[in-house]
Design a protein around this nucleic acid. Structure first.
Ligand SMILES: NC(=O)c1ccc[n+]([C@@H]2O[C@H](COP(=O)([O-])OP(=O)(O)OC[C@H]3O[C@@H](n4cnc5c(N)ncnc54)[C@H](O)[C@@H]3O)[C@@H](O)[C@H]2O)c1
Ligand SMILES: NC(=O)c1ccc[n+]([C@@H]2O[C@H](COP(=O)([O-])OP(=O)(O)OC[C@H]3O[C@@H](n4cnc5c(N)ncnc54)[C@H](O)[C@@H]3O)[C@@H](O)[C@H]2O)c1
Lengths: 205, 205
DNA sequence: CAGAGTATGTGACTGCTTTCACAAGGTGAC
DNA sequence: GTCACCTTGTGAAAGCAGTCACATACTCTG
């Protein structure tokens, strides 16, 4: 019942469970079994039960899981009952799409600060926010207590950008630049590179 | 030396190795050790050697790996010595960014067909390509022999879109919609959802 | 309220993944 | 050529993750 060290791989599946629960609520379900959840996710029911059992006993035997209750629990476990302010660095094509993306807010995130180093862009408005000069990043990140950032700058600028973010106490970085960045221990990094995902699939073609 | 069944998890790392080799070539390196490669990727040298040993003996004892040779081998293993034509479905904010992204070509991919269902967008040019009506998708996918598609439509339209793609013999799908899609066996799917990646990190904050 | 049906939580087990450690082979200085 | 030093490829071992199967407990029908 009390949660010791939970494997990363288990933590990595929780957001998928949460996402599916939200769809179940939209569809009006009040209760869901590990079997149904597993069917939707392509995961075995046993694995879902074992994953959840790391954090507590959320289900009811003979019935399944109360969808709203489980959603609340996962939201709490993942620390997304609050909305995290997020900084976006690099407001090019991808940055624009991310800034205008309305899928973040309901998942616990809001892009509140946008940065670029292009003088032609600085000062412009995007998604209701002004684009700030990267030179002001240290001050603004501090003032807003930002802990999470999204990096959408060219690869060549990614490591330098990350170094600044880390120095400003950012502790979680979502990196879209197709390059491996290095960070000190205690800083989380997740990488998104569509070419890598595509190449994973062409192996099997 | 001959490659039997290679674990998925190993295949998943090969694109990262390949990406790093490309940077090494840019930097003028001719040879790299598993240690250096591991350092850059945050992976143990032993794991890199074992992964590569599934496919052959590419290194030289006492020296390391010839960067160009290893790159060529991985390019071959992943089937990206050719350039794959890719269809993009959904040309909104994200679709625009992807269509204009110039990082695909050097990795073995080119977006050659773009589809949308918005009459206002159909016929417009994006990144030098015309946006086609989704109604023409079956015919055009067939004519172009498309095997790979990127899905960037709203969640509500994702499963229906995927069903059409699968029926048109697409065998690899990169899905940006934040929903679990189901496909018959033999069809590869990779999902990209930034909110999921962010929630994986907030657990640790 | 009894009994058939259903679903969880979990220890034991199986299988997969990573690390270890070393023989074999290559390098470079002198 | 020799010797000290590297680095690979790989079995063996260790460590992790996923599945199985069942005791337990809830539901629902009649
Ligand atoms: N466009 C895509 O669909 C896509 C897909 C996958 C990955 N990416 C990656 O995402 C990143 C951004 O892609 P994009 O297409 O938006 O490129 P882009 O060139 O349109 O945008 C990059 C932006 O970053 C800004 N920038 C450059 N250096 C900076 C710095 N030091 N500090 C702050 N801002 C800086 C530029 O002014 C520009 O506005 C790149 O690394 C790219 O490889 C893009
Ligand atoms: N914008 C982002 O940064 C971002 C980030 C992550 C995920 N996503 C996801 O990517 C998808 C697209 O996001 P977006 O921001 O580009 O949205 P968008 O609304 O700007 O674009 C969606 C496009 O899909 C088209 N479309 C709708 N139904 C279609 C159908 N049946 N067939 C073909 N085209 C259809 C629309 O006409 C529109 O052009 C969404 O699922 C979104 O959740 C977007």
């Amino acid at each position: 019942m009390p949660m010791g060290k939970v494997p990363d791989i288990v933590v990595g599946r929780l957001p998928l469970y949460l996402r599916t629960l939200n769809y179940l609520i939209e569809e009006g379900h009040e209760v869901v079994s590990s079997q149904e959840l597993g069917r939707r996710l392509g995961i075995s029911p046993a694995q879902i039960r074992k994953d959840l059992s790391h954090f507590g006993e959320f289900g009811k035997q003979g019935a399944g899981y109360d969808v709203n209750y489980l959603r609340k629990q996962l939201t709490h476990i993942l620390h997304v009952e609050r909305v995290w302010p997020v900084a976006l660095v690099g407001c090019g094509a991808l940055g624009h799409a991310l800034a205008n993306y309305n899928g973040f807010l309901t998942k616990g995130f809001e892009i509140t600060l946008i940065f670029d180093n292009d003088p032609a862009k600085i000062g412009q408005m995007v998604a209701g926010k002004v684009i700030h000069d990267v030179a002001d990043m240290p001050r603004l990140l501090c003032e807003h207590g930002i802990r999470i950032a999204i990096v959408a700058v060219p690869s060549s600028a990614a490591q330098a950008t990350v170094d600044i973010l880390v120095k400003c106490r950012v502790r979680a970085i979502l990196n879209y630049a197709p390059i491996n960045i290095s960070v000190p221990p205690g800083v989380q990094v997740q990488n998104i590179d569509p070419a890598v995902h595509l190449q994973r699939m062409t192996y099997y073609l």
